[in-house]
Simulated scan of single mutants.
Amino acid sequence: MDQCMKCPESHYANTEKKQCLQKVVSFLDYKDPLGMSLTTVALCFSVLTALVLGLFVKNRDTPIVKANNRTLSYTLLVTLTICFLCTFLFIGCLNTTACMLQQITFGGAFTVALATVLAKAITVVIAFKVTFPNRVVRWLIISKAPNFIIPICTLIYLVLCAIWLGTSPPFLDQDAHSEHGHIIIMCNKGSAFAFHGVLGYLCSLALGSYTMAFLSRNLPDTFNEAKFLSFSMLVFFCVWVTFLPVYHSTKGKVMVAMEVFSILASSAALLGFIFAPKCYIILIRPEKNSLHHIRNRSHSRRNNPLKT
């Protein structure tokens, strides 16, 4: 040809380089195999979490539910349900509002979940490890002072979120270069510093929860969940530390799918490691979920102090 023209970003050249063709608009859709798989997993875990919550409410007066603070357990289960459901904001046709809700909902739900785990771990440490006078320990437990960690941590997150939205909020963006012949519709995080700051805040909460749970992992309390808390926080921390390099090395729909997978994996870790042992005792070994069993174990320890 005597004169050549470059195709606009919304088009691409055909094989013969004779004309420009319209690029196909693409996003992580529910109908895609990847989107359908993530949607199915998120829906299954949401239903499973709701069933666990119903099981705990039904058995709310049993020792295993009462021993680990029913209010915190209910709060954690409700929050995990929201964590699983918030993945639907990442799948399907997007808009500016959905882009902002993605990060606000995801970060807020995980902040409440991690703060709840931290409150659980601190309650165990206060009850068995601190050297405060007995009346102070009794006041801390009766007043449920550790529960105030949840609104405090949530308030800190809201401040970080307000700074993020006030400076450079997430917005709807297009990626016309990652896939040939396609325009990927995706959400731009806006301020990369704010996005990584929120992730860093969540990881610091996970690390704090892991530290507190690790300190109380060997306490000889019946139904002590410190070991499960510490292991779930370790898995959570590893998932999000691994997420960052993988996230930055992918593009397009795969990058969005990677974030959704990390949300599902970390939420599933909290649900599985914290609540699966309790559900096992409630459903499979109900004889252990009784005051008679607890009294027998306590009597056994008094007669044999070396037994753990």
Score class of each variant (00 low, 15 high):
58 K>Q: 13
213 A>V: 09
92 G>P: 03
186 M>K: 12
275 F>T: 04
232 S>R: 06
36 M>N: 14
234 L>F: 14
238 C>I: 14
254 V>M: 08
257 A>G: 05
165 L>Y: 05
281 I>A: 06
188 N>R: 07
177 H>R: 15
301 R>I: 09
17 K>P: 10
144 K>M: 08
68 N>G: 00
130 V>G: 13
305 P>Q: 00
151 P>V: 02
107 G>C: 08
122 I>E: 07
4 C>G: 11
50 A>K: 10
64 I>P: 10
179 E>I: 10
239 V>S: 05
65 V>F: 09
206 A>K: 05
141 I>W: 09
96 T>S: 13
41 V>L: 14
176 A>C: 12
298 S>D: 11
228 F>R: 05
17 K>L: 13
289 N>G: 04
174 Q>A: 07
277 P>S: 06
124 V>R: 02
84 F>G: 04
32 D>W: 03
75 T>C: 13
124 V>C: 10
217 R>N: 07
251 K>R: 12
254 V>Q: 05
13 A>C: 14
217 R>P: 05
223 F>Y: 06
187 C>M: 00
18 K>P: 11
220 P>A: 01
303 N>V: 06
113 A>G: 09
285 R>M: 03
192 A>I: 15
58 K>S: 08
87 T>A: 00
301 R>F: 10
57 V>H: 15
215 L>G: 12
187 C>S: 01
302 R>E: 15
272 G>L: 15
291 L>M: 12
62 T>N: 03
137 V>L: 14
154 T>M: 04
11 H>C: 05
32 D>T: 10
71 T>M: 15
267 S>I: 00
126 I>P: 04
60 R>F: 11
249 S>D: 11
47 V>S: 03
35 G>V: 03
24 V>Q: 15
259 E>M: 09
151 P>L: 02
97 T>W: 11
52 V>H: 03
148 F>V: 14
86 C>F: 04
100 M>W: 10
190 G>M: 04
162 A>D: 02
135 R>W: 14
173 D>A: 06
154 T>G: 03
82 I>H: 02
230 S>P: 13
173 D>R: 01
256 V>N: 02
115 A>I: 05
280 Y>C: 10
105 T>C: 09
81 T>M: 13
11 H>L: 03
65 V>H: 08
233 M>S: 10
200 G>L: 04
76 L>C: 02
201 Y>F: 09
20 C>N: 04
35 G>S: 02
114 L>S: 06
204 S>T: 10
284 I>W: 09
265 A>Q: 06
121 A>D: 06
137 V>H: 11
55 L>A: 08
240 W>E: 03
50 A>M: 15
53 L>E: 05
173 D>T: 01
196 H>I: 12
128 F>R: 12
268 A>E: 04
103 Q>C: 08
48 L>N: 01
269 A>M: 05
31 K>I: 13
140 L>A: 09
22 Q>V: 13
212 M>S: 15
95 N>E: 03
2 D>I: 12
184 I>R: 10
305 P>C: 01
